[in-house]
Amino acid sequence: MSGVALYGSLVMAGLAVLQSTVLRFVEIAGVSPDLILIVLIFLANKNGTMTGQVSGFVGGLVLDFMGLAPLGFYALIYTLIGALFGITRGKMFVDPIFIPVILAVVAMLLKGLIALIVATLFSIGAVQGNLFTSSYLIEIVYTGLVAPVVFGLLGMIAWLQPDRRRGELT
């Protein structure tokens, strides 16, 4: 496992804790943005599939430990999202605003879809009640709006990006 996958996993684990505690203070209508998802798609887009899937797995696993989700639920969802968004590495130009918004919204929709499939396969009743609500819609919009800011902040950290680590970009 590469160093960035290891660091990425640690970042995701820390974010999972922040998501449940500090992010309560920035809730809109009881909803906070999915910071873990934004960081995950950033890591996957910049570093590829391996980093994406490993970071997603670790972040998801920590989420599973902290609440009522059955163990493996978020781990599976974020692993798949990390792997899928890893494929986008080097295949698109990520501008400061629009692409982060689009990536975040697509990731949120994908998260809902995978959650629905997993919930159906494993008879987890709680998911549908929370998926088809205005809260999830607000979360999609909120996450999309926050994504450019998070991408901008993460873009300043060189070790999260292999190109900048190698000094190819300034």
């Binding site: 590829g48 599939t49 391996m50 899937q53 490993v54 797995f57 998801g60 599973d64 430990f65 059955p70 163990l71 493996g72 639920f73 781990a75 599976l76 692993t79 798949l80 792997a83 890893g86 997993v118 494993f122 008879s123 987890i124």
Partner: peptide, 28 residues
Amino acid sequence: NGLTLALLVVISVVSLGISTDAMTLRPT
């Protein structure tokens, strides 16, 4: 990449299978 993804998915699915059944020892 594919092998790692398969391994992580298998771990997640097995955990889900165990978690969604009644268990006496709860890893969570």
